[in-house]
Design a protein around this nucleic acid. Structure first.
Lengths: 350, 350
DNA sequence: TGGCCAATTTAAAACGTTATAAATTCAGCA
DNA sequence: TGCTGAATTTATAACGTTTTAAATTGGCCA
C-alpha cells in the first residue's frame, strides 16, 4: 500500500492522526529530513546547509506550515506576546485605541502579538501586573499614566521584567518610557493665552496623582510667573472629570468674583465642556475668553475650530512604545535608547 | 545532602531545574502522589477521593501553583482565549473600549483571556479572521459591524468556529449575535421629531455596507411614510464621516432650497457636528430645528443637553456578547439562546 | 588506505500538561 | 480464605517544539 513516489519513511507515519494542521514532522516526512533539521532550517541556523534551508522553506510555504505557538512557548518559555494595560479613563475619545493602533503597527511583521488586559474591573493595576508576570502571560508590558512613585514600575524593575510606560516617574532606577513633554506643552499653551492679552489664565490639569499632571502644572506656573500675571488652578475638577462636572464647575466659578479670562485645557472633552459652561454664562469664545487645549483626535477641530490646540500624536506614541519595548526585550540595556521624550509641535503662527 | 524532612522522593528530584514556578510535579512530590492524580484532583474529577482532592487543593494554594497555559494549550488544543477584532472606526468615542470592557466583565472568573486583534493595519477583516482560525489563536471570536452577506460570518460558519457578532446578517444559516434594535431606535427617534412638529426630517445613517445602516434607514422611512411627511437622507456623509465633513455638508445643504428641519443622527459626534454646521448658518437647536441622536457615551449629554437621545449601552452589549460566546463554546447549539436583540429604552416622557 | 577535522545531520530528551489504559487497593461476599 | 468488582491511583504516551549531545558524512592530507 505504501506509495513509493513519496520519499517519506512510511514506518511510523501517523499522517491521519490530527487532521489538517501540518507540523514540523509533516515537513520532515516530505523532505526525508529529521525534525530537528527542519526546525533548525526554518530558524535559519548557519550549521544547516543553504541547500537544505531553501528546500525546507519551500515545502513549508507550500503546505502552509506555521509553527504551533503553544509548543514554542512551552519549550522556550517565551510567549511572543506583548500585553497592554488599559484603563477605564481611556474609554473616552479613543485614547486607548489610538495607542493600541500604534503598538500594533510596531509589532507588525514581528512574531509578537498584542494582548490587552482591560483593567476595567475591580482589580487594581498592580494586581494585573502581578498576574501577568507570575503567570508569564507576556514577554513585555506597556501601560500609561505613571505616578511619580509608580508601584507597577517598582515591581517590574525589581524583577527585571521588560516594560515601557507612557509617562515618566520620579524613581531613581531608570526605566524605559515614551512620554510627551507636557511641561513644554503647558508652558507654551499658557504663554499663548497671555500673548493674546489674557491676564488671568486658569488651568484644568490632569489628576494630581499622575506624573503628567505635575508637569502640566509646572509648565503653567512657569508661564504665569514669567509674565507676572494672575492665575487660577480650577479646583475640584480635572481632565478626567465627567464633562457635566466640568461644565458645572466653570459656570459656578463665573458666578463668583474675579473669574479667569482664559483656560489651559489638558484635553478635548474638557475644552468642549468648558466652552459649554461659558456659553451658559453668555460668554463667547475668542471674545470674552480664550482656550488653548491639547488635541489628540479630530473632534475638537471639527466642533470648535476656534479653540487653539497643540497636537499629541498618540498613535505615534504607541508605535514608539512598541519599538522601544521590542528593543528592551531584545536585550538592549542602554537606557538612553529606551527613553523618548516627544516634543510638542508648536503651531508656526504663534 | 538530601533533606529527610521533606516527603519528596529525592531520586529524580530536579528541583533546581527551573527556579521558581511550581508545577504539577512539585505538588506530586510534596503530597507523594502521582502527577496524574494531582492533575485530576485539581480538575475535581469524581474518581479521585474527596480527601485527596482537598489535600491537593490545599498544597496547590499554599505553594501558589497555577497551571502553565502553554502546556494546557498544547495538550488540549484549547487556547482559553477569546479574540476581539477591533476596527479603526472604533477609535473615536470609546466604542471599542466600551465593548471590550463588557466582554472582560463576562470573562471575569472564567479561565478565558481577552486578546485584541487590532485591525488598524492594511489587512482586511477577513484576513484577520483567517489568521486567527488557521493559527488556532483563540477558541472564539467577537466582531462588530456585520454586513448583510458578511464574508467573515460565512467563513466562520462554514468551518464551525465559535463566534458572536455585534450586528445581524441576512445569511440563511443562523449564527450567534447580539444586536441593538436599530430599526426601532430609528423609528421612534424619527417619530419623536415628527411629534415635535417637524415636517422634514433628515437622516444621517450608518455606512451603507453594514446591516445596521439598513435598519436605521428602514426605521426612518417607516416613520416618515406613516406620517406622510417630507424627508431627506443626507447623501455623501454617514455616521463615520469626519466631524468636519458632516459639518460642511450640513452647512452646504442649508445654502440650497428646501432644507430639512430636523435630524435623526446615528451617533454623538455626528450630532455635535450637525449642531456646529447649523449654528454656522445661524440656526438654533430647539428653535429652528431639532435633533434626536443615539447616545453611547456621556459626551453629548454634557455638551448639548438639548439634544434628545436614546441610549445604547455598549458595555452591556459587550457583556452579552461574552456570555453568548462562552455558551457557544460550551457547546450550546440552540440558536435561540445565542441570539439577542436588545431593545432601545425609549424615554418615558416621549 | 586510513585518519582526522569540519560540516552537516540526527536521535533523544525535555518543557508541563492531559488522555488512555493499566495497576493497585479494598470492601463485600461466597 | 479467596474471588470479584468497584473505587482509587498510577505509569506511559502524547501534544509540537527546541536544546543538548551524539552521529554521520565527506574532504583532505599523510
Amino acid at each position: 500500500m505504501a506509495d513509493p513516489s513519496k520519499p517519506a519513511r512510511s514506518e511510523d507515519n501517523s499522517s491521519p492522526a490530527r487532521r489538517g494542521k501540518p507540523t514540523l514532522r509533516t515537513i520532515a516526512q516530505i523532505t526525508g529530513l529529521a525534525v530537528t533539521t527542519v526546525s533548525r532550517a526554518l530558524a535559519e541556523a548557519p550549521q544547516i546547509s543553504a541547500d537544505t534551508r531553501r528546500r525546507v522553506r519551500e515545502v513549508a510555504i507550500e503546505i502552509g506550515y506555521s509553527p504551533d505557538r503553544a509548543a514554542q512557548r512551552l519549550k522556550t518559555g517565551r510567549t511572543n506576546v506583548i500585553a497592554v494595560l488599559l484603563d477605564p479613563h481611556e474609554e473616552i475619545l479613543g485614547y486607548g485605541t489610538s495607542i493600541m493602533s500604534g503598538i500594533a503597527k510596531a509589532l507588525q511583521g514581528t512574531s509578537y502579538h498584542l494582548i490587552v488586559m482591560p483593567n476595567f474591573l475591580n482589580t487594581t493595576n498592580v494586581e494585573a501586573v502581578n498576574y501577568i508576570t507570575r503567570n508569564s502571560m507576556a514577554d513585555g508590558l506597556i501601560f500609561s499614566r505613571t505616578e511619580p512613585l509608580d508601584p507597577r514600575v517598582m515591581l517590574l524593575s525589581e524583577i527585571g521584567f521588560p516594560f515601557v510606560t507612557h509617562g515618566r516617574t520620579e524613581l531613581s532606577a531608570p526605566h524605559a518610557y515614551v512620554d510627551y513633554d507636557n511641561f513644554t506643552f503647558s508652558y507654551q499653551a499658557t504663554r499663548r493665552l497671555i500673548a493674546k492679552g489674557r491676564r488671568k489664565p486658569a488651568l484644568i490639569s490632569g489628576p494630581a496623582d499622575f506624573t503628567f499632571g505635575g508637569h502640566l502644572q509646572h509648565g503653567f506656573m512657569t508661564a504665569v510667573r514669567e509674565a507676572g500675571c494672575a492665575y487660577e488652578i480650577l479646583s475640584g475638577i480635572d481632565l478626567d472629570s465627567p464633562a457635566g462636572d466640568i461644565r458645572d464647575r466653570v459656570r459656578q466659578r463665573y458666578a463668583e468674583p474675579d473669574p479667569p479670562d482664559s483656560f489651559m485645557c489638558g484635553g478635548e472633552v474638557c475644552a468642549l465642556a468648558t466652552i459649554t459652561g461659558m456659553s451658559d454664562c453668555g460668554l463667547t469664545l475668542g471674545r470674552e475668553y480664550d482656550i488653548v487645549a491639547k488635541q489628540t483626535s479630530h473632534l475638537l477641530g471639527a466642533i470648535q475650530p476656534q479653540v487653539e490646540t497643540i497636537y499629541e500624536d498618540l498613535t505615534a506614541t504607541g508605535e514608539d512604545m512598541g519599538r522601544v519595548l521590542l528593543q528592551r526585550i531584545g536585550g538592549e540595556t542602554d537606557v538612553s535608547k529606551l527613553q523618548l521624550l516627544l516634543s510638542p509641535q508648536i503651531p508656526a503662527n504663534w
